[in-house]
Amino acid sequence: MSEQFERDEAGTGGGWQAVAVDLAHCVRFYSRLPVPALPFEQTPHALPSFQRLVRVIPLAGLLIGLVPAAVLGLGLMLDLGPWLAAILSVSAMVLTTGALHEDGLADTADSFGGSTREKRLEIMRDSRIGSFGASALFLSLALRIGALATLASRIDGAAVMAAILMVASLSRTAGLVPLVFLSPARLDGLSQAVGQPARETFWLAAGIAGGIAVVLGALAGLPPMGVALMLMLSGLSGLALTGFASRHLGGQTGDIAGAAQQVAEIAALIGLLTAIRP
């Protein structure tokens, strides 16, 4: 299907039109946001090819992060308090993405119960959630809400909103690391269907995500050390999940990419938090 996408979109105009089409496909894939078909877009609902879309994933993450950032800012403006504002913001992110990454984290955690590679892959394909998956979801939500609430109690709302945008871009880029550096663990999974991104394109995406984080961090007045920790820890999270997937499954899956995004988001938020004292 990704090859069909490549052929169908080959006729799209170059330059900004090609970037706009890739960005539209990327936002549709990663979220439930109602992205209309562009006038020059030939296959708006085709399965995207990550061989093409990697370059715009940091920008897609930035757009997706606008919703939870706005919700948090509105909550703080209405004096709802940092904890309730953080809960509403994380809820908005889950609704915006359709719990795409949370599903991957839960399936990955549930695979801990498998004794063999084949059993682990079978568990990950099962739509039912087990105790490992439920625990992982609870911990992920709790850590993200706690980190955002603590940040909101230490810095102004605009800076926290900027941090949400930075994390949304960095974590989705980190989620690509397993897809780039490992082969698919199964031949009929989603990661196989969307294609393996080229490493050169991934490094371009990583540079864009890093540039977005540095610029937003400077504009928001966030400490440079905190921004550096966000960059470093999100990248290390992607590498850690890549190593885990290699040992655990002998390759990567879409669920592993989702788990990498979740871990990177938590790590980046905590990294920034450690650089901001009460």
Rank of each mutant, 00 (worst) to 15 (best):
R28C: 08
A69L: 07
D156Q: 15
D103R: 05
V19F: 06
M77H: 15
L204M: 08
A268G: 04
P197M: 02
L273W: 02
W203G: 03
P184E: 05
A20K: 06
D79Q: 15
D79R: 15
L78E: 10
A264P: 08
L249T: 04
L187H: 11
L222Y: 13
R125P: 00
A218T: 12
A275C: 09
S49R: 10
G11F: 07
A86S: 13
A152N: 05
H101D: 03
A168R: 03
A275F: 08
G251L: 08
R7Q: 14
G15C: 04
A268R: 04
A213S: 14
T116R: 07
F181T: 05
I57N: 10
R186P: 01
V90E: 13
G235I: 03
G210V: 05
A134I: 10
G98F: 05
A70C: 13
G73Q: 11
A85T: 08
A60W: 14
R28H: 10
L141R: 01
G81Y: 12
Q192W: 00
I64M: 08
I129R: 15
Y30P: 00
D8I: 08
R120L: 02
L141C: 11
F181Q: 02
E122F: 00
G146E: 06
P82S: 10
L88H: 10
D79Y: 04
R144W: 09
A142E: 02
A257Y: 01
A46Y: 00
F138A: 15
S115A: 14
S49A: 14
V215D: 00
P68H: 10
V180N: 00
R28I: 07
I129Q: 06
D156K: 05
A69W: 04
P82C: 13
T173F: 11
G226K: 05
G235E: 03
A268Q: 08
P178V: 09
R199V: 12
G250A: 04
Q42W: 09
V71W: 14
V56A: 09
V67Q: 05
V56W: 12
A213Q: 09
G217Y: 04
G271D: 12
I129N: 06
D156C: 01
S140L: 13
A168S: 15
W83N: 06
A86E: 02
L141M: 14
R144V: 05
G243V: 01
L179R: 07
V167A: 11
T201Y: 12
G11I: 10
G211K: 09
V263N: 01
L33V: 14
L33H: 08
D103P: 02
